[in-house]
Nucleic acid binder design. Structure first.
Length: 554
RNA sequence: GCCCCCGUAGCUCAACUGGAUAGAGCAACAGACUUCUAAUCUGUAGGUUGCAGGUUCGAGUCCUGCCGGGGGUGCCA
């Protein structure tokens, strides 16, 4: 659609130049946009304004010249106007607008797909929580975001893989083991100092209690090192399973669970580090191995191997990203919490040091989530007195509302999550508003079946009966899906999907009020059932990308 | 100190990356149920886009400097 009009404009400009009514100046890329105001038509371009400054002639004059030379394409366009300072506004023919319904009918769930991604292979790595504790609410936001982004990019023609990186190696694991060890020995009645930076959460005590119940004091004879290792090996897989369970419950499925240990086991870390050393990108200083990240835009060089011989998290991360690149992804997207923001230049520098294009790595930094209940911020769980876990939130407000709320805002602004609102089953709650539109459509279709209404595909002439404003608005909005998908994919901004869903739902509800679907007029009924089915399909598609269910009845 | 993000209606946010009269939802106020789901709809009101400059045909958007909020600035992850 867009391309067709752009093509017409290009031809018109060429024609105007050859007729000499347009000065022969270079013309920038033609941009078409959907005007905010209805009076400005269905599409508009500012090309005359851009040309005007180069040609030093009034923009309106340029615009007139372009319109003058435009073919009158009556099939698609009914009106071309010059407006305001020199915009050219296009109005689509009603028949063309309604045709979207045939397209939806034909393509089904493929309607809205775009090929803008060109089949490029993209990996989205997200959540990647340390398996040392339950997921918290912030992880929920990244889960919803990463999953929806992967969905929408898939729709936009990318080949997307979802990956979870498991930090099952190093100091976090050690801390986890020592924390449990301490709680366990406490139960056994042995003296053991709780690690200074250990995990203080109640869940650690629960784990220790369970171990005590299962094993009694049978483990207490082990020396500290053995015991900690034993506890790590026993408990981190369980924690990981529980994390997987929570994510699954949210409807998030990963293609790959990538283990940090595996990197070490395969020798990837050593190999990567010696490679960097050989290339002269890493050097030894004061007993530690440093990567020359400062020569690639980082503030200073970073340590890969500490002077105590232990590799840093950064070391395995460099190896990990090398592995990602070697797997042949064209683009790798990492979703990190905003507190990792200082880590971005370091990682990008790491990419350069390895010899990869740092623009193949994109990092989305997500801002934090604040929960509100009764207008008051909530930080702690009433039940446990600790940070609210994702599972608790899912218990309270459900998966649909959680996912929808997590996705409502741009990832780079703070999210205020109103628990009371998310639970409300009323139109103030956007999840219910959108889902209700879908349920209402299902109800209409059930009724249609009940009264034996003819729901066969209408002819184009019958579809012409959809001529009122609510009907046309609805069709126009349906036609925007592909644009929305492309925007969300290219800007990595799936939150715009929620806005689109709400707009579509609002137009449907307005249509519902003004246009009775099942009536005595068989042709009109056919046309309207067809329209309503189109809306249903698009709502399903959008809710599907958001990971929110589309209920048949509510 | 330096770096990054944010600041738009009472509240939560948009604004298609520089376009036309800055838009939605909620809350407020006034209306609409012989109806395919009123879990809905219609209307009214609400603004010096944090402040001050600058760039140009045109700025919420770009540049500079302030102010306020958040995050970062480890041989932590």
């Amino acid at each position: 659609m867009r391309d067709v009009i752009i093509d017409l404009i290009e031809k018109a400009i060429g024609e105007a130049k050859s007729r000499g009514i347009l000065p022969n100046v270079p013309v920038a890329n033609i941009e078409l946009e959907r005007p905010k105001r209805k009076e400005h038509g269905d599409w508009a371009t500012n090309i005359a304004l851009l040309v005007a400054s180069r040609a030093s002639r009034p923009a309106r004059e340029i615009a007139e010249a372009i319109v003058e030379c435009m073919e009158k394409e009556s099939q698609i366009l009914t009106q071309i106007d010059v407006a305001g300072p020199g915009f050219i506004n296009f109005r689509l023919s009603p028949r063309f607008i309604r045709r979207v319904l045939f397209e939806i009918h034909q393509k089904g769930s493929d309607f809205g797909k775009s090929s803008i991604g060109g089949g490029r292979r993209v990996q989205v790595e997200f959540v990647s929580a340390n398996p040392v504790g339950p997921l918290h609410v912030g992880h929920g936001r990244w889960a919803a975001l990463g999953d929806a982004l992967a969905n929408v990019m898939g729709y936009a023609g990318y080949k997307v893989e979802r990956e979870f990186y498991i930090n099952d190696y190093g100091s976090q694991m050690e801390k986890f083991g020592r924390s449990i060890c301490s709680r366990y020995l406490e139960l056994v009645g042995k003296e053991y100092r709780f690690p200074e930076d250990g995990y203080a959460g109640e869940y650690i005590k629960d784990i220790a209690k369970r171990i005590y119940e299962e094993h009694g004091d049978a483990l207490a004879h082990l020396d500290e090192r053995q015991l900690v290792d034993r506890l790590i090996e026993m408990e981190y897989p369980r924690m990981l399973e529980s994390i997987k369970g929570t994510l699954k419950r949210m409807g998030v499925e990963f293609d790959v669970w990538f283990s940090e240990r595996e990197l070490y086991r395969r020798g990837d870390v050593d190999e990567t580090l010696s490679m960097l050393e050989e290339k002269g990108e890493a050097y030894w200083h004061e007993g530690a191995l440093w990567l020359k990240t400062s020569s690639y835009g980082d503030e200073k060089d970073r340590v890969l191997i500490r002077s105590n011989g232990e590799p840093t998290y950064f070391a395995s991360d460099v190896a990990y990203h090398r592995d990602k690149m070697e797997r042949g992804f064209d683009l790798v997207i990492n979703i990190w919490g905003a507190d990792h923001h200082g880590y971005v230049p370091r990682m990008k520098a790491g990419m350069k040091a390895l010899g990869y294009d740092p623009s193949a790595l994109e990092v989305i930094l997500g801002q934090l989530v604040k929960l509100y209940r009764g207008g008051e911020p909530v930080t702690m769980s009433k039940r446990t007195g600790e940070i609210i876990t994702l599972d608790e939130l899912l218990d309270e407000v459900g998966v649909d509302a959680s996912r929808y709320f997590f996705l409502q805002r741009s990832s780079d602004s703070h999210l205020d999550f109103d628990i009371d609102l998310a639970k409300k089953e009323s139109p103030e709650n956007p999840v219910f508003y959108v889902q209700y539109a879908h349920a209402r459509i299902c109800s209409i279709l059930r009724y249609a079946k009940e009264v034996g209404a003819d729901d066969s595909v209408p002819t184009e002439e019958e579809l012409d009966l959809l001529s009122t404003e609510p009907e046309m608005d609805l069709c126009k909005k349906l036609g925007e899906l592909e644009d929305v998908v492309e925007f969300c994919a290219e800007k990595r901004a799936p939150h715009r999907l929620t806005g689109y869903a709400e707009e579509l739902a609002a137009l449907f509800h307005a249509f519902y009020r003004d246009c009775r679907v099942i009536s005595d007029d068989a042709a009109l009924t056919r046309a309207r059932i067809f329209a309503v089915k189109g809306v249903k399909q698009v709502l399903m598609t959008v809710l599907g990308m958001l990971g929110v269910s589309a209920p048949e009845e509510m």
